[in-house]
Nucleic acid binder design. Structure first.
Lengths: 207, 207
DNA sequence: CCTACCGATCGGTAGG
DNA sequence: CCTACCGATCGGTAGG
């Protein structure tokens, strides 16, 4: 018997209704969870297989290799951020408005898919070449575009004369705790969270 | 022949002048570097041994196990942060002054020992019990004391009515990019960096 | 501090 | 999708 080639998540979910998840999607989600909790290297294909009720060897009908699972997680999330950036860039809006939307984007994407954003953020260094270089290029592109928006705001006098590079990294990091923390007894709503974080970063702490 | 029991870094460096480093210190520093670059799991004892010009088995004359190397890195850094906290707490100063000093502490400790702070921040989850629980207890203690200072500032009207938990995590994270970035062509001085980051967090971005 | 070695586990393949 | 299996590598020990 022959088995079909692995499909991408997008292809695979195309033929199903929203409620049922393909085996490939189940593997993808279990992998994101395990990579977040234990790290990529500490997650074995046997761990992953057990999580979805298969034997390790059967995983290879869905993904060509372990590193390809990671690659798909990283690429998908890079795309999500880049699409959000694109939507913000085309707006006819002030730099303040754009930066606000970008911070909201980071918060929203993080809360929407906590596990996969964490894996994307922390485990990309285990990508193999040439995928590592391709990923870093996407990231660099995103960072540059982010910094351009900051620069515009500084030039127009909307922002303080900050170093765009430092500000961008500070903002990226400032929402990175969300996926470590925002999972169990979340006593606070996404909207409140956005309001708090935006307030801190845009207006500062001091009264 | 017998070999002496492993000494802690503090003991080991006591008998030497400042310039020469004990083998144990060399192993410790190489481990911090490898853990940061490749991660704990991806670093083998053979990698580590090669880095200091030994065979893997010889490492066990200095550390009882691989996980003990990580434990020492994590514990040492937790101590550094807790000592800094202690110094800030005993000050007769405003909450603004204390929070400023804490942010400076994070920046200074990060720049002082970039690799070991990174390993401490990113690899602690690979600690084995009971050391994992002990570490998390230290961290929880630090976080609580940090949040208490914020709460005091909110109560006294120095700070905006922020959620202390959210603010503390935002501040912790906001300086976490330093060790990923601040190593090679650092075109900016530590003092400038402090000024920029403090400005962003205390006064906000908007002019 | 080394050589030699151990059992366990890894990612992945063959073959059906 | 499974069983069976491979070579490589792992953390760690024995013994000197």
């Amino acid at each position: 018997m022959t088995y079909p080639r692995p499909l991408s998540i997008v292809e695979a979910s195309g033929g199903f209704s929203a409620v049922e998840k393909s085996k490939k999607e189940q593997i993808y989600e279990a992998a994101a969870r395990l990579f977040r909790d234990k790290g990529y290297q500490a997650t074995s294909m046997r761990d992953l297989a057990k999580e979805v009720g298969l034997r390790a060897s059967s995983l290879y009908n869905h993904f060509p290799s372990k590193s390809d699972v990671l690659r798909e997680i990283c690429t998908n999330n890079a795309q999500r951020f880049l699409e959000g950036m694109q939507e913000v860039e085309v707006l006819d809006a002030s730099a303040t408005e754009k930066l606000t939307r970008l911070i909201r984007l980071h918060i929203r994407l993080s809360l929407e898919d906590v596990t996969s954003v964490t894996a994307f953020n922390d485990e990309w260094r285990h990508l193999e070449e040439p995928h590592l270089s391709a990923f870093l290029k996407l990231r660099k592109d995103y960072e540059s575009r982010f910094q351009t928006i900051i620069q515009t705001g500084v030039a127009s006098g909307e922002f303080k004369p900050v170093n765009p590079l430092i500000l961008s990294y500070t903002l990226f990091s400032a929402v990175r705790w969300l996926y470590d923390w925002y999972k169990p007894g979340k006593k606070i709503s996404a909207a409140e969270l956005e309001q708090e974080v935006l307030g801190i970063l845009m207006e500062g702490v001091k009264l």
